[in-house]
Nucleic acid binder design. Structure first.
Lengths: 152, 152
DNA sequence: GGTAGTGTTGATACAATATCTCAATATATG
DNA sequence: CATATATTGAGATATTGTATCAACACTACC
């Protein structure tokens, strides 16, 4: 098994209670509305929108106010437990982060795989030398079709 | 001079009349509002927002309605003459595309360099083999400070 | 147990980005 | 010129998100 595959398997999303724990460690209270958002995000198991979180919760009659959902998503992004997804058309999706930066996203169903070995170091070094820029961050997202959607 | 540097120098943004020509070739009329947007985008010479286009044009008393600016930006994105920039915080900036996908952006002043040799082929092949996904698109943006902003 | 201080919530107002609607206008074609 | 089509501008609407603020909940202290 290659090193890259091992890494990917290590990047499974954390379960809700683990995310809750990290929130508590960061000094935030693990309230019912926040837990609800965590449960929804874990259950959706893909790149989700705030609207999708709300729908999932409404169907189970446990949706907090929409403001609290937005607030919780923002908080979790700040804590780097969630991450904004840069889509091809819009950037209104989020994922459970796992602390890693990059995603492979199915444009058909939203299924998402995370990875962290983006292999951009050489490109960054080259560009820095050629442009004089100091590069300290990047966005990388890959899009395609997951095996399931390829067979449908 | 390396091959990569040559490529970058070839990726200078097209002048307004050239963009207008491509619009005409695609079957769209080159109207005054559309030309105004092209001029503003070329003049701004960086990753710009629709609001910045409008401001530039208002200062010269030649701003079309905001709806037409949005429409023109969308049209130019569809024609791949403009391209949406995926920023670290939001995704509301655009650039003149040159038909190429990637940018190096100064987070301080918005200065922008484009390049097309992203060197992701190996990563994409590896990920396809390991995940079974078919990857057919990607977003890559690099962020840092340009030489000018580094000295200030 | 009561009280003060802090954090959180939910409803609502607001903001920013973008699209839709539709009558008026401009442009191209016969 | 007449007609058909494309485009515009104004304003309404949609979507995504943040700000405000009173009510509530939890914690620590007395």
């Amino acid at each position: 098994m290659s090193r890259l595959l091992k890494q990917q398997q290590a990047l499974l999303p954390a379960p809700a209670h683990e995310l809750a724990e990290q929130m508590a460690e960061a000094g935030y209270k693990v309230t019912q509305p926040r837990l609800a958002v965590l449960r929804a995000a874990v259950a959706l198991d893909k790149a989700f929108t705030v609207h999708e979180l709300e729908q999932w919760l409404l169907e189970r009659n446990e949706s907090p106010g929409i403001a609290s959902i937005f607030r919780t998503v923002k908080l979790l992004c700040d804590l780097e437990l969630f991450q904004r997804i840069h889509g091809l058309e819009d950037c209104h999706r989020y994922s459970i982060s796992g602390g890693h930066a990059h995603h492979l996203i199915c444009v058909s169903c939203g299924a998402l795989k995370s990875f962290d070995n983006c292999g951009l170091r050489d490109l960054i070094t080259t560009l820095e030398q050629q442009t004089g820029y100091h590069i300290n961050d990047h966005v990388l997202e890959l899009f395609g079709h997951c095996p399931r959607c390829l067979t449908v």
